[in-house]
Each structure stands twice: as C-alpha cells, then as structure tokens.
Simulated scan of single mutants.
Amino acid sequence: MSSSVLQWVWLRHCVFATLMVLCVLGVFIMYYKPDISIPTFNIHMVSQKEGDNHSQPDTIILIWMWPFGFKFDLSCRVFGITGCHLTDDKSLYRKAHGVLFHHRDIHGDLGNMPKEPRPWFQKWVWSNAESPANSGRIPGLDHLFNLTCNYRRDADIPVPYGYLVPVTDRDQSFELPAKDKLVCWIVSNWNPNFKRVQFYNKLKNHINIDIYGKAFGQHLNNQDFPKIISSCKFYLSFENSIHTDYITEKLYNPLMMGTVPVVLGPTRQNYENYIPGDSFIHVDDFASPKELAERLLYLDQHPAEYSRYLNWREHFKVKISVLGFDHACKTCHYLENHRGYQAFHDLNKWYWG
C-alpha cells in the first residue's frame, strides 16, 4: 500500500476519533452539566452614587407622597432589612419595584398620581392608617392597586399601630411610675355624636376623670403626654370610630407607660388578637358606665388585683409603629419575597363595605 493511501486512512481514523470524542463530550455536558452560575445584572438597579463603592440594594420603594407631609428615615436597618432602597425621587419611577401611595394625600380626581404607564414588574401599594370613617372614598381607586398596606389583619401588608415583642435579657426591668391620678383622658377631637364622648359624659357622673387636650384649649407638647399618662392608674383608650382592627396608639401609649387602658373600640376578642386579655379593661364587659366606675374604684382600693393587669410586662414590651416608615419598610420586605403578579380589586368595597 502506497504511503499516500496510508496517510489518507490515518487521517480518516483521526477525524472519526475526534468526532466520537466530541459526541461523548456533548452528551456529558447535556446530562452532567456542572452548576456554574454566570453573574447577571439587575436592570432595575439604581445607579451608584459618586464615591460609593457598593451597589445599591435591588428592591426599590418609591414614596410617591409623604403621609400628611411627614418625612422619615429612608433606612430599614432598624428592622434588620438591608436589601431595600427607599426614595422619594420620582425620576426613579421606571426602576421602582413598588410605589407607595398614602390614601389621605391622593387627590379626588387622581391628579397627583403618576402619568406614565406602570412598568410590568412594578407594584402600586395603597397605604392608609386612618379608619374608614376618617377616610373619604375615591371611586377611581377600585382597580388601580396591586397591594394594600393597612392596620387591618387581612391587608396584604398588615401594619398595626403597635405590637408586643418578647422581653430580652438586655432589657432593663420596668419600674411602675408613681400614680397620683385615678382616671385620665387626653382628647383633641371632641364630637358630641361620637360614642366615646357619649360614654364619657355618663362615666364622669360616677368617677373623677382628669381630662386634657386640644378639645379643652390645652396644647400639650411631646413631653406632656408621657407625664400625664404614666401618672394615672387608668387611661381612657377610646377610639374616635369603631372598626375591626382599628386599634390605635391610644391603646399602646398607656401600655408602654405602665398604665392600664380602659378601651372603647372593636370587640374584646379583636383586642385579644393583639394584647393579652388581662392587660386591659373593656367597656363592653360592664352593663353600664356606672358598673365600670365601680370596678375602677374597687381596683384602686385593692393594689394586688390592680397589679395583675401589669403582669404581662414580665414577658413583653411595646413597640409602636411609625406612620409611613413602618409601612415603607414592611412593603419593601414583602416585595423582596413576593415578586409575582398580584392585583387588588374593589378597594372601596373591601375598606368601606
């Protein structure tokens, strides 16, 4: 056999062997592909600030309007949330994963809402801390939002006015403040048609109540509130309107300051979703304001029984939510874990019934 023929045969074998190796390698890669991650870049990231060596977090919450004009810190680190970027910079609208709208600041004609189309990945979040009685219906909102952020437990992002957290070893033991008053009430919104005003007018006939606030021409500063509330054995935690889960700082302030709240609002069972049943007194537990007054006077004369309403402090302490701030951070935390499509319909029916 000539040398040229031998070379041709050898070349053919080499080509065949090479093809076989490539086929086997392809099958191996197809079925036994190693887990190699290729870095990707989030197209919705905020551009780096000048001099900042770290990229911005990948969840952006745009605060479209400050609630009642009240501005707050734009860092959620106090909650242990680090993957959030809160901003009021509307130029970031197209990059924001969530846009937070405060109901009481939305114009009735929706004139101050975004004019640009909503990006496909973006969630519009309706936020409101006021009760239905103190919030006007806006028909155009019915099919506008993806999520609700509200004090109600059935909201997508529930944000109660306050909550209890466990006491830790680092917490200092609580010392009960000195009490020189029996019953106190601080009230600014005085309306004779309110149930709380009507109940007070009956209760005051049977027990002495120290009353303060704007309704009586008194302008209290931030230091006055804790001084007054902590100096009373009982505080009238009367809500201005009665709705499910509408339990405001009127409850949590006296709890925090070592005073037993006497509540007028939703049912006892509703309150017990948030605080222990033996930490407060509910007006509905009594047949009349007179019977309630008699119970308070009895507890005043029996310190051991009164102190039972404060035993919960051995295990829990109070945290009070900050208007807007808690809503923004909890919205961001929610969106970190829920990126799928969501929509909310019939807002007016859900909230106003």
Rank of each mutant, 00 (worst) to 15 (best):
P261G: 09
N221Y: 00
L310Y: 03
P132M: 09
F238I: 07
S135K: 01
W120Q: 05
Y341V: 12
L323Y: 10
D346Y: 14
D109M: 06
Y161L: 01
P226R: 10
D346Q: 14
V197F: 04
R308A: 08
D169E: 12
F174H: 02
F238E: 10
L144M: 04
H243D: 11
F234Q: 06
Y163D: 05
K95M: 02
G26E: 11
Q218P: 01
K123W: 01
F238Q: 10
N337R: 15
N240M: 04
R268L: 15
I229N: 10
I61E: 03
N146I: 00
F121H: 15
V165L: 07
T87G: 03
W66D: 09
Y306M: 04
E239Q: 02
D169P: 00
H97F: 00
R152S: 03
P160K: 02
Y252K: 11
W350N: 11
N311Y: 12
A178T: 00
T148V: 01
V99K: 05
H102E: 02
R268S: 15
D300H: 08
D278T: 07
F16W: 13
I211D: 07
P192H: 04
L11S: 15
H282P: 09
D154L: 02
I38D: 10
G140Q: 06
S237G: 06
P226F: 05
R268F: 15
V260K: 04
I275F: 10
F238V: 06
M113T: 13
E272Q: 14
D326C: 11
Q218C: 02
L92F: 07
Y298N: 00
A328Y: 09
S188T: 03
G140P: 00
T168N: 05
R152P: 00
K181M: 12
H243R: 01
V283N: 04
F316C: 12
S127W: 11
Q172R: 12
K204S: 13
V99Y: 03
T87F: 08
D88Q: 05
H44R: 13
Q122R: 04
S279L: 04
L11F: 15
H315T: 11
N205V: 02
P117S: 12
H315G: 02
G98R: 03
L92C: 07
H44C: 07
H143M: 00
L100T: 07
L164P: 02
L147S: 01
N273L: 15
K204V: 15
Y200T: 05
